[in-house]
Design a protein around this nucleic acid. Structure first.
Lengths: 257, 257
DNA sequence: CGTCCAGTTGATGCTGTTCAAAATCCGTGG
DNA sequence: CCACGGATTTTGAACAGCATCAACTGGACG
């Protein structure tokens, strides 16, 4: 893969590197383009370009001018807010198919950081906005995705405001486990195995805790047999229902669709 | 005003009571109908009906079937989530022009409770959804409003996860002061006076605190001269910038638009 | 082999919770 | 008009959970 260094140290893939055809795109049916017909897809195809980032790279700083919107194709990024004195709170986890940026806004409202190697499908904002007016399918899908994100944000508000440290950790593990299971098209039940995509510090920023507390609670869950660790990142959950029982949520359905 | 009792004890205004014409509606240019042309407005007018609730009444319970969506016309309502053991977290404050309900969802995801006397402009969900497909202006406006709510939710996540009790109280007071100023079309500066629309308990549920802590911190802010209280609910802020300084946010612009 | 980084563990203290009681407010009825 | 009762709010005292500061461990890498 060819990389070029630009301005602020961002490494981006050479724009001439081959992009996946929309038709073959792994997130084709889940991203903002999900409802588009073939002709609408052609128009998107015309204005799209790929960009890749290394793990740890900052995609955009809060307050910076942002002249594109994008879909995450592969990898994980985080959305976070930082106070002057350095306290930071993660406000979103961006997974494949998630949308970044806001039509109609000039500057980024949050820091976006690549947690793993990241590939994004970008659209310059102006053409994208114009396209949105012409093709309602994009706006419809974006509304649907935004409503889902709002629900997720509100779920997270409950976690931040009312859950104990142990419940917070269990909830995060359950969410990651669930997402992993979704990718494998299996519904989470019984024994589950996955890798943590986040450092202890990132988890702390997500959960509104300190990294020490995260570490302690993970150790406690390990001690109690709720999880088994191999290395620091590889997690085995022997009994998913047991984990759910630790989240404080309703054990049944849980999670809005 | 004529009230009738129905089923679960909800008091609703007799549907034959006069409704405001959309053209004269106080939230005409801010609600979900903001972008509608006259003919589109006529279609909305045809399917709308008003409903009123008394202060303290539950508008809808989480999990209940919800066959309408609505705009708040007057009054304040809260959106909240409750865990089995009773811990509750408010996840939204609904003010005039705010939208309630989600197109495409069968059941309510949150409890909605009227904090003050409340008037809502309701639309049966089915016709509203059909109308949304025909008139892009509604979906466009709803997208805009949902994106704003998502920003507000994320702002709140920072508050819940990282702010101290004192900062939380100051932030809430600042938000209410700002909203009040907006209604009076004045930008908040210097001396500000307003009434708290929430009980200490509701504030606690909003801020992820206990009501005792809320009370203590309000007393502390009073002791320090940041606010002056007359009675329990009437607040005077002698110096709005001083209050902002207590929120922990950037002192300048603060708050996304 | 030494350094660096992520993570773990320990000791201590502060912030906010919990439980309890007193104070204030407010509507109701004598 | 005043007394009463319930709801709301304030205040106090003791406690718990998580943060803070600090030392240590283990693995990756030059």
């Amino acid at each position: 893969m060819i990389e070029v260094k630009i301005g602020n140290g961002m490494a981006v893939t050479d724009p001439h590197v081959a992009q996946t055809e929309c038709a073959d795109c792994p997130i084709r049916h889940r991203a903002v383009c999900a409802r588009c017909e073939t002709d609408e897809l052609d128009q998107l195809e015309a204005i799209k370009y790929y960009r890749t980032y290394d793990a740890g790279q900052t995609v955009i700083w809060s307050g910076d001018r942002m002249d594109f919107v994008a879909s995450v194709i592969e990898g994980i990024a985080t959305l976070s807010q930082t106070m002057e004195d350095g306290r930071t709170q993660m406000v979103g986890l961006l997974l494949p198919s998630d949308f970044v940026g806001r039509p109609g806004r000039e500057t980024a409202a949050y820091d976006v950081v690549a947690t793993t190697a990241l590939t994004m499908c970008c659209f310059r904002k102006k053409p994208f906005e114009e396209l949105m007016i012409r093709t309602p399918h994009i706006g419809q899908r974006l509304l649907e995705m935004t409503l889902d994100e709002l629900d997720a944000a509100r779920e997270w508000m409950l976690l931040l405001g009312r859950k104990t440290a142990r419940e917070k950790i269990a909830s995060l593990l359950a969410i990651i486990a669930r997402r992993d299971a979704t990718l494998k098209l299996s519904s989470p039940r019984g024994r589950i195995v996955f890798d943590l995509p986040l450092t202890r510090e990132a988890m702390a920023d997500y959960l509104g805790l300190t990294l020490e507390t995260v570490s302690r609670q993970i150790s406690a869950l390990k001690r109690d047999g709720v999880i088994v660790l191999e290395g620091k990142r590889h997690v085995t959950v022997p009994d998913f229902d047991r984990l759910l029982g630790e989240t404080g949520d309703d054990n049944d359905g849980g999670m809005l669709v």
